[in-house]
Amino acid sequence: MSMGRRLFGEGTEHHRPRNAGVDSARVARRAAGTMRRLCAGLIILLASLPWRASFGCGATSDCLVTEGSYRIRLPTNASGRQLGAVIYFHGWQQAAEDVMSDASLAATAERLGIALVALNGEQKTWSFPSSPTHHRDDFEYVHAVVDDLVERFPIDRKRLLGAGFSQGASMIWYLACREPRLFAAFAPMSGAFWLPAPNQCAAPLPVLLHLHGLADKTVPVEGREVAPGIRQDSVRDSFSILGKTAVLHAAEPARLTGSEDLHLVCRRSTRRADGGVLELCLHAGGHFPIAGWVEHAWRAIPN
């Protein structure tokens, strides 16, 4: 036998144990069993956490729908339960990314144990019947988002709060007028109808709580002409259209979490048997959103 054949074990029995084939098969079986257990564990984990399981979107990446996109942040204590959510409409020339970077809004949603959903306006604005520009059918877009939300995530369709600021608040007003039961409650801040305003709104009366600053120059309480032929309606007129028979009475001012020093003057209608109620709260400040108003509106949702 040549030296080369001896060195590499060819033709020699002592370089290969007699049970080597058995050991190899045993190792292979063990490896296969370990892999099966790992896969089973992974499947169980993903099944128990469906909302975490790479839906391809979240707080830092867009969830795509046929009409556009949105972003979502889920609370850390979700633990498989059905979640409520605030559907937030950003202001003019903002985007969902800006909403998601709002630490106070994120903290509010986390404290309430609900999802924060930030919508993306086409061209960073909203298209409603009297808006200055029209880029898409935003009513269809909102429905596409809601349908996708409840299909993709553990979101309860009956526990949705629609909130918005400025131009996004105007979109909230038009949604409340057109579909008063689309959301369990509506929380517009610093924005109302534009002219020409709707002649009437659909029944029943929604749960709508509006916040506005008396020193707001961007969207004044009394409305203003933005450009020739383009005018914001007044908050007073908007309320008279939405709730023609709902009289607002002086009410105990709301105390907003995180803005306890903000003095509010509030008026509220009598809550109806079906839960509908209107509320208007004014403060001395200007044009800015307040995360505490979202929490106030969430707690006003009928049980």
Rank of each mutant, 00 (worst) to 15 (best):
G223I: 00
R268D: 14
L149C: 03
V146S: 02
R299S: 13
H287Q: 05
R268G: 04
L209P: 11
N120Y: 03
H134F: 10
H283R: 06
A185W: 09
A176Q: 01
R29V: 02
F186E: 15
E10A: 06
L195E: 15
V207Y: 07
T66V: 13
I241E: 07
A25R: 11
L105D: 11
R224W: 00
I301S: 14
S240P: 00
D156L: 09
A192M: 14
R37S: 02
G213F: 01
L209Q: 15
A95Q: 11
F128W: 11
A300E: 15
D156M: 06
E222D: 11
N303V: 08
R152V: 04
V265Q: 14
M35V: 00
I43G: 03
A144R: 04
R231I: 05
G191F: 02
S166W: 07
H134C: 12
V219D: 01
C281H: 09
L83E: 15
L49T: 08
Q167P: 05
N120L: 03
D237L: 00
L112I: 11
D98E: 12
N303H: 15
S170V: 00
D233Y: 00
T245P: 05
A20K: 05
F55H: 14
A53F: 05
I155P: 05
D147P: 03
Y88N: 09
A251H: 07
Y174Q: 03
H15R: 13
R26Y: 07
A31G: 02
L205N: 10
S24H: 10
L175K: 07
A31Q: 07
G276S: 04
G292S: 13
F288Y: 07
Q94V: 02
S101H: 10
G164V: 01
D216V: 01
M3I: 13
V142S: 05
E151K: 12
R5A: 12
T76L: 08
D147M: 01
I44L: 15
G229C: 06
F55D: 14
T133M: 15
F55C: 01
I114D: 10
N77K: 11
G11Y: 08
E252C: 01
L116V: 01
S130L: 03
M100L: 09
S61G: 08
H90L: 00
L278G: 07
L208P: 11
E295V: 10
G9T: 11
A118K: 00
V235K: 01
E279V: 08
F193W: 12
Y174E: 12
H210V: 14
Q82W: 01
S234I: 12
S69P: 12
G285L: 07
F8G: 03
A192T: 03
S127D: 14
C266L: 01
A118P: 02
P220I: 02
H135R: 09
K158S: 15
F139D: 14
D98S: 09
N19L: 13
E67V: 03
R36H: 06
V22N: 13
H212G: 07
T245M: 09
S54W: 04
G121D: 08
A85G: 02
